[in-house]
């Protein structure tokens, strides 16, 4: 650490100017807009309504349903991804021929454009074209995500699991290989079985990486838009209209800028709270584990 504060700000200033224009100003502007009634189609123009937009938001069944669907999606998806990812990572942590190949295959979905993933999943799930509905039909299961809300929900879950479980696996694998070897050796010498070693040695040591991955996955699934929009367009009905989709569609279709702004503010507020809670958790867990 060296150098004066002023010169440091000098190096930071170009970034602050650009982020000020595309990040901070929009943030302030959306706060300001959220206090107005403002619909492009309305003749009234901008009308100051104070916190009425937020009051309306809290009593808006459509928004609440989108929010709860979004949160349900977060819980189910993250639950499946973390459990499955951890199990597969433990299984693959042994050395075997072809591990490098598998690693490459698993990295592939991580780099793909979400919208292209959505269109890939359309191709495989659409009735009359897709193999999934054809083969399920052979088994006597009618599968059509444009008809069944439940199937649509679980298809979006499976798509996200397909997309991001490889990330969880690779991250856990990296974490597993960087663990110190001595505690595991000691456990084996003491006669601990594989499950006991995992439960009492590996898992406690993995906690920092576990909370970090949970944090990343929660935030990512909460703001999901591209893939789900491409696959289901939020349908059938509103079955997969998660909170980002609800917001964007409402703004684009109805041009409700003031009300939409209050919704944006609410989402940003939720994001900040979740980040704050989870980052504090990460710091605390890290301190506990590394202090031991």
């Amino acid at each position: 650490m060296h150098g004066t504060e002023l010169k440091g700000w000098g190096f930071l200033s170009p970034t602050l100017v650009v982020l000020g224009f595309v990040g901070i100003f929009p943030f302030v502007y959306v706060l300001y807009l959220s206090l107005f009634y403002y619909n492009i189609f309305s003749l009234r123009g901008m009308v100051y309504v104070g916190i009425n937009n937020f009051r309306k938001l809290m009593n808006d069944p459509k928004f609440m349903s989108a929010l709860s669907k979004g949160l349900l999606f977060v819980m189910v998806t993250c639950g499946v991804e973390i459990t499955l990812g951890l199990a597969i990572a433990l299984l693959l942590s042994k050395k075997f021929v072809g591990r490098g190949v598998l690693r490459t295959i698993m990295t592939l979905p991580l780099a793909m454009a979400p919208v292209a993933i959505g269109s890939m999943w359309i191709v495989i799930t659409r009735p009359a074209v897709g193999p999934v509905s054809y083969w399920l039909g052979k088994l006597g299961i009618s599968y059509d995500i444009s008809e069944s809300a439940l199937q649509a929900f679980f298809t979006t879950v499976i798509m996200d699991v397909w997309h991001w479980t490889p990330f969880v696996i690779l991250a856990f694998l990296a974490g597993l290989t960087s663990l110190p070897r001595e505690p595991m050796e000691a456990a084996r010498v003491d006669g601990a079985g594989p499950w006991q070693t995992f439960r009492h040695v590996i898992f406690p040591l993995m906690r920092p990486i576990l909370v970090t991955i949970v944090f990343i996955r929660i935030m990512d699934t909460f703001r999901i838009y591209d893939e789900v929009w491409a696959l289901t367009s939020g349908g059938p009905g509103t079955a997969t209209k998660y909170v980002s989709i609800h917001l964007v569609r409402m703004v684009l279709a109805r041009q409700e800028y003031g009300y939409g702004a209050s919704m944006s503010v609410f989402l940003l507020y939720l994001t900040i709270v979740m980040c704050w809670v989870l980052l504090n958790l990460i710091t605390r867990v890290k301190r506990e584990v590394y202090a031991e």
Binding site: P26, Y29, Y225, S244, Y257, S264, L267
Partner: peptide, 8 residues
């Protein structure tokens, strides 16, 4: 969420 920046 990127969606919350759409309006401004």
């Amino acid at each position: 969420p990127p969606a919350s920046f759409i309006i401004p």
